[in-house]
């Protein structure tokens, strides 16, 4: 399809009034890229311009670009090194912080424990002292009660003798002696 269109185009173009092909020296009808009259000049100028370009590139521009790229990559490598070093430092700082924190926690725990123990001991000592005091007081009280009871028992004998003496006197009109009454009671 495209080839057909191209062919038509070429035919139509050929019908047009002759465009002066290739100047005066060019052979009539020679396809310009095959016109050997112009080979020498093209080779010459190509070599000349390409040599200048090669010289400029190899001596000036490419080293310049290469150097810039080199500098950048070394700079980036340096920065990465610095960053990893800083990260390591930060990690170490974090580790030492954690260690300090753990130490402090352990210490605080110790302090609390010893405080608790000493308080416990104090409480126990005071409770013991109080217990001992209470026991002593109870003993003293018991002693007093026993004394009172004995006294009371002794009093009961005397009261009973009195009462018996009085009863006998009232019944018989004769007052027995205390000793007799006591003898009779026992």
């Amino acid at each position: 399809m495209l080839n057909a269109i191209t062919l038509i185009g070429l035919k139509l173009a050929a019908k047009k009034p002759a465009g002066d092909y290739g100047g005066k020296e060019a052979a009539e009808g020679v396809f310009p890229p095959f016109d050997s009259n112009y080979f020498a000049t093209q080779i010459f100028w190509l070599f000349l311009t390409f040599a200048i370009l090669y010289f400029l590139l190899s001596r000036v521009f490419l080293p310049r670009i290469g150097q810039t790229i080199e500098e950048r990559s070394s700079r980036i490598a340096d920065d990465l090194d610095a960053a990893s070093r800083m990260q390591k430092e930060a990690e170490e700082a974090e580790k030492s912080y954690e260690r300090a924190l753990a130490d402090a926690k352990a210490k605080a725990h110790n302090v609390a424990e010893t405080t608790r123990q000493s308080v416990d001991a104090e409480v126990k000592a005071e409770m013991d002292a109080a217990d001992a005091e209470a026991a002593k007081a109870a003993e003293a009280a018991e002693l007093r009660i026993r004394g009172v009871r004995e006294k009371a028992m002794a009093n009961i004998e005397a009261v009973a003798a009195d009462a018996a003496q009085a009863t006998v006197e009232a019944l018989t009109g004769k007052k027995p002696t205390l000793a007799t009454v006591k003898k009779a009671l026992n």
Partner: peptide, 14 residues
Amino acid sequence: AAGVDPISQFEIKK
């Protein structure tokens, strides 16, 4: 003419 002729673009001129 130069516009429609597809070959003339390759011509070398001194």
